[in-house]
Design a protein around this nucleic acid. Structure first.
Length: 342
DNA sequence: CGCAACCGTCCACTCTCCTG
DNA sequence: CAGGAGAGTGGACGGTTGCG
């Protein structure tokens, strides 16, 4: 028997259990997929908004209904068995088909309207999505959008749990997407040093000589975004080399909070250019300097089969065009005193 | 080795929805 | 409206891991 036939047989057996098992429900398949990707019931339970014992029971019930063990219960984690891996691929196909059916039925029921579910970083959603939707044919007439603003890990959880069909994240903040998902580049997003608008560092060789005491103190107060990724390590190292005498004024968990502190003249921060945009323009009272740091790479992640869906491919192209059309932010060159330190 | 933290399972119970 | 099935919760418990 060749692979194709074997896969067909697996499909048939799985499909039969879907029909005759009774204990195999779409809800359980959804839970199964989330647990498979989260690798612990506790994390999966948090993501699904359920208590953990409930998941344990659902997975056991699913295993019983399928007559196979899907997970090896290791200490502190759930590891897919060989059969579990096969079942996962099939379960994903079932849920994708259900999603397609749901979308199709909804399109019929609501006059050919399709719902696009997107999750992503707030800066990306805020800056790229509006112009992309504006430029996308049919976006305002034939489509509905369900938009989730989320942290990278949550974006992936939403994708893997089939709550959204498209994720927009920085590739640096995630592991490689698992089998069945594709990553499409959208843009590179430079990391810049944002300072209050009055702080002109252009051409500056020695801040201690060229700045008044207040501005020098301001330059040495940093607002640091908690990246939790290797980008964060790079930024911390950059502060240490570029501004060795700086101290951290605040740790923040959103670029908006960081920039608000900078706009208020309380400190400086390193942020992606996208985060500095408001309504298509750079937020007021900010001056942006190049840092030489490795830029973020914004990517779209989606289930492989959606790549061939005309609506999703049009949306991705619109996002790429929107990124290309971003009018050049007034980025100043890296100040000489920082360039020399680096 | 003892302890705390974390994890998965079991059990009893509640709540909701469906059906007759 | 009553009863049953399914899904969920909290609490208790035992196992594993990491740390001092």
């Amino acid at each position: 028997m060749d692979d194709r036939n074997e896969a067909d047989t697996d499909d048939a057996a799985f499909g039969q259990s879907m029909i005759s098992g009774g204990g195999v429900t779409l809800r359980r398949l959804q839970i199964f997929i989330v647990v498979a990707y989260c690798e612990t019931l506790t994390r999966a339970a948090k993501q699904l908004g359920l208590a953990q014992p409930s998941l344990s029971q659902q997975i056991s019930a699913l295993e019983q209904a399928l007559g196979m063990q899907l997970f090896d219960r290791r200490s502190n984690r759930m590891e897919l068995t060989g059969e579990g891996h096969k079942a996962l691929a099939l379960a994903e196909r079932v849920l994708n088909s259900m999603q397609a059916l749901e979308d199709g039925v909804r399109a019929i029921g609501s006059g050919a309207r399709q719902t696009i579910r997107v999750a992503g970083l707030s800066s990306v959603l805020r800056v790229l999505l509006p112009p992309a939707l504006e430029a996308m044919p049919g976006a305002t007439t034939g489509l509905d959008f369900d938009i989730h603003e989320s942290a990278p890990a949550d974006v992936l959880d939403l994708l893997y749990g089939r709550h959204v069909s498209l994720g927009l994240v920085a590739s640096e903040s995630i592991e490689a997407p698992p089998a069945g998902f594709q990553m499409v580049p959208i843009m590179t997003d430079p990391l810049v040093l944002a300072v209050p608008g009055h702080l002109d560092l252009a051409g500056m060789r020695d801040p201690a000589e060229d700045l008044c005491a207040d501005d020098l103190a301001l330059l040495h107060r940093t607002v640091q975004f908690v990246f939790g990724t290797r980008t964060g390590d790079g930024v911390r190292e950059w502060y240490g080399r570029a501004l060795p005498r700086s101290r951290m004024l605040a740790q923040v968990r959103s670029y908006e909070s960081a920039l608000a502190l900078v706009q208020q003249g309380l400190g400086i921060c390193v942020v992606p250019v996208l985060a500095t945009r408001l309504g298509g323009r750079v937020a007021e009272n900010l001056r942006l300097y190049r840092t030489g740091l490795e830029p973020r790479h914004i990517v779209a992640i989606l289930p492989s089969q959606y790549l061939h869906n005309p609506t999703y491919s049009a949306l991705i192209e619109a996002l790429q065009r929107a990124a290309g059309r971003l009018s050049g932010a007034p980025l100043h060159d890296c100040p000489p005193f920082i360039g020399a330190a680096l």
